[in-house]
Design a protein around this nucleic acid. Structure first.
Lengths: 151, 151
DNA sequence: CCATGATTGTTGTATCTGCAACCATCTGGT
DNA sequence: ACCAGATGGTTGCAGATACAACAATCATGG
C-alpha cells in the first residue's frame, strides 16, 4: 500500500514552517497592538509614498477583502491609517499612513528584518539566494506574482 | 527610511505559498468530509501499523492538542478511527485506523501525492531536491524535526 | 504511603475567519 | 439616457481556532 510520510510532504512542511515564521513575528507586531493582516496593510502602504486603495492592498497581499476591511478599521482606530474618498471613483477609498503610522512602520521594519534574519540563519548567503529563487519559481508557477501596480 | 517589500519578505511568501498549497489539497480532503487537522491524524496513524496515542500525534504534527482532540472526535464519528484505552497508562488513549479509515487513507494518499506533484511542477528534479534540502535545514535550525517516535 | 506536581485529554469561551449578502458606484452596450 | 452587469467596500453570521480551565491519571520525593 502507498504510504506518505507527513514529515516529507511539502504542503505540511510549508504550512508548519510558515506557522513558525508567523509566530515568531507576532512578538514584534504585538508591541504595537496589531496582527498579521494589519501589518500587511502597513507594509503595503509603507512601501509607497502615495495613498493606495483597499482593493490594491487586497490584490497585493492576496488577503480576503473582509479581512483587509477590518484591519483598516482597526488601524484607523489606532490612528495609524487615514481613509478618504477618491475624487475620481467614489467607490474606492484611498488609504494613507498617518505620521504616527509611518513612525510605527519605520520602527517595525528593522525589527522584522532582524527577525527574518534569525529565521533564515540556518542558510548561508548562497543557500538563501537559492531558496528565494526557488520560492519565486513556485510562486510564478502558481500565478502568485501579480500585484497589478496602478499608477 | 528603511523600507520592506512584502513580496520579497520570506515570512509573507511562505505564508502565502503554504495557504495556496493547503487550499489546493482541501479539494481532495473534502471528498471524504474531512479537513486539514483530520488529515494530519490520518496521515500519522496511516504511516505506522500499530496504534499511536493522541499525544504522539500532537508532537508529530505540531498541532494544538485541542485541535487534535476534536479532529479525532470527528474521525471517530465517521468511523475512520477507533479510540481505546492503553493498558499501561490509563491517561493515554490509543488511536488506530479502522478498516474504513485505512481504506480512506489508501485512496487519499495517491491523490495527495499527485497534487503535491502539480504544486511543485515549476521545479525540475534537481531544484526540487535542493528545495527539500533547504527546507530541512530551516526546519532543523528551528527545532521542528523532533517527532519522538516511541516504541 | 501521601502529597505535590507533571502529563493526557476534553471542553467552555472569547476571538477570529471567510463566505455571502448587501449597498453604493461605475462601465458598457444599445 | 437607461439598464444590466461589474467593481469597491462593509457587515451579519456561522464555523473554526486557540487559550485556559478542568478532570483523571501517573510519577517523584520525603
Amino acid at each position: 500500500m502507498a504510504r506518505l510520510n507527513l514529515l516529507r510532504f511539502s504542503p505540511f512542511r510549508l504550512n508548519r514552517l510558515a506557522a513558525e515564521f508567523s509566530g515568531a513575528l507576532a512578538a514584534d507586531y504585538a508591541r504595537f497592538g496589531i496582527d498579521i493582516p494589519e501589518w500587511r496593510v502597513l507594509a503595503t502602504l509603507g512601501l509607497h509614498d502615495g495613498p493606495r486603495s483597499a482593493a490594491y492592498v487586497v490584490r497585493c497581499t492576496r488577503t480576503h477583502k473582509s479581512r483587509i476591511s477590518r484591519a483598516v478599521s482597526q488601524l484607523a482606530g489606532l490612528g495609524l491609517v487615514e481613509r478618504h474618498e477618491d475624487e475620481g471613483d467614489r467607490r474606492e477609498i484611498m488609504l494613507a499612513l498617518t505620521p504616527e503610522g509611518r513612525a510605527v512602520y519605520a520602527e517595525l521594519v528593522p525589527l522584522l528584518l532582524a527577525r527574518e534574519e534569525r529565521l533564515l540563519a540556518a542558510l548561508d548567503p548562497g543557500e538563501r539566494r537559492e531558496f528565494e529563487r526557488l520560492l519565486g519559481k513556485l510562486e510564478t508557477g502558481l500565478g502568485l506574482m501579480r500585484c497589478d501596480e496602478p499608477a
